[in-house]
Structure formats: C-alpha cells, structure tokens
Design a binder for these strands. Structure first.
Lengths: 104, 104
DNA sequence: AACGTATATACGGTGCAAGGTATATAAGGT
DNA sequence: ACCTTATATACCTTGCACCGTATATACGTT
C-alpha cells in the first residue's frame, strides 16, 4: 500500500497515471501531451514501474506504458476495510439508539 | 486527491491512520502505542488534519483524534473511475471477440 | 556503416519534508 | 498559586526526492 501511495503522491506522476487511464501511451506521447522533459518522464515512469503501477511493452525502439490493475484493486480492497469499520460503527450506534428507544 | 495521497504516503502517518481505523485515540495513546516522540505525533496529526484526513475534538486538556470519512470516500470514488475504464476495455474486447465470432 | 529517433541513466544541484530538542500554551489537580 | 500533565509549535539539522544537463543504449532507416 505504502509503495503505491508513494508512487501516486507526486503531482507529475499522478498526471501521468490519469493520462494513462484513457489509454496506453508511448514515452514521447506523454512527454508532449503533458509538456514535460523526456528524462523527467522516463524517471517518473521508472518509479511507477517499480511500484507496480505501470508496465511497459517494447514496440520497436519505443516503449508502450500502461496501467496495471493490481495496485488499484489493492487500494480499493484497502479502502473497503475503512468503509466497513464506519458501517460497523454506525451499526453499533443504531443498535444503541434502538436499545435506548426500547427503554423509553 | 493529491493532498490525501500526500498525507497518506508517509510511513508514520499511514501507521497512525491504520491505528485510528480501529478507534479514535488521544495523542498520548498514539505516541505510546506506536512508540513515537510526542512532537512527531503532533506534527503528523497536523498534516493529516490539514489534509482533511482526521479531525480532533477537545476533551479537557487532551485531544481526541479520529478519521474523517470524506477523503476515503473520495479515494474510493476516484478508484471507481479506473475500475470502470478496465471494465469498458474488457467490454470492448468482448464485443470485438463476439464480432469476430460472428464473422466465422 | 552512418545517421536519426526513442528511451534510459548518470551526475550534480536544490528545496522540502521529516526528525530531534527546546519551549510555549493550556488545562487539571493539590 | 503551584506543579503536573497534555499537546502544539519554533528552530535547527539532515536526508532524500525531484529537476536539469549531458550522455549512454538500442533500434530503425538510408
């Protein structure tokens, strides 16, 4: 979780990820669409790749980058735990209120 | 989204958040349970508070910190967009395969 | 083989975020 | 009033992450 969060918690990288949501892109495309320097793009993609957020496939001398599902699924699952705990607390609250109601 | 991610993308803060998932806690409790210095806890809580991840209520000379739902709901909604785009791509692939099937 | 294109990496510089120590603030207890 | 407890903040230091520039690598084209 931490690695994924760290990878996404950087403005430029988040922009890259948001771009890749619509479709896979080559490094040069990302560079031009987001107006970044080429090394900047490569380095951010490296971080994203090492965090498992993206993967690349070689196409001639270019590399096509796309998102991996796993980290997003994991984040969703992680959040699910928080959603559930609130639900539980609400359930407990409701139960409590009901009990109070019974007493009156 | 970025502010939430930035707030969570720090090991100690993530630990604090995970601790607060189970129940609200006072600063001193966090300090002892996670074996941190008191200023460290206060400063991380400040970041979390300013990012809207936690909120505090004053109880005598102590402060009770608890998670806010909003950022987690927002993250879940954000992830939903990614889930949907993969679904859509899969749908497109299925449609394509079906079409191929029709042609044969 | 030579050149151009696409991408990765190495290296140096810089700013910012995190930690530690000391201190301020505020509320309780005696 | 005084002392203790609880938390926040100020100040300083340090490490690390990001940026820019230069260069390496690899593939394609002629």
């Amino acid at each position: 979780m931490l690695t994924t969060l760290t990878a996404l918690a950087e403005p430029t990288r988040l922009r890259i990820v948001e771009l890749l949501q619509s479709s896979p892109r080559y490094v040069g495309e990302i560079e031009k669409l987001l107006v970044l320097s080429q090394p900047q793009v490569s380095k951010h993609l490296r971080v994203l790749r090492e965090a498992g957020v993206v993967e690349s496939t070689v196409v001639a001398q270019r590399r096509l980058y796309e998102l991996r599902r796993q980290p997003f699924q994991e984040m969703a699952a992680w959040l699910e735990g928080y959603r559930r705990s609130w639900e539980d607390h609400l359930d407990a609250l409701e139960a409590h209120l009901e009990k109070i109601g019974d007493d009156q």
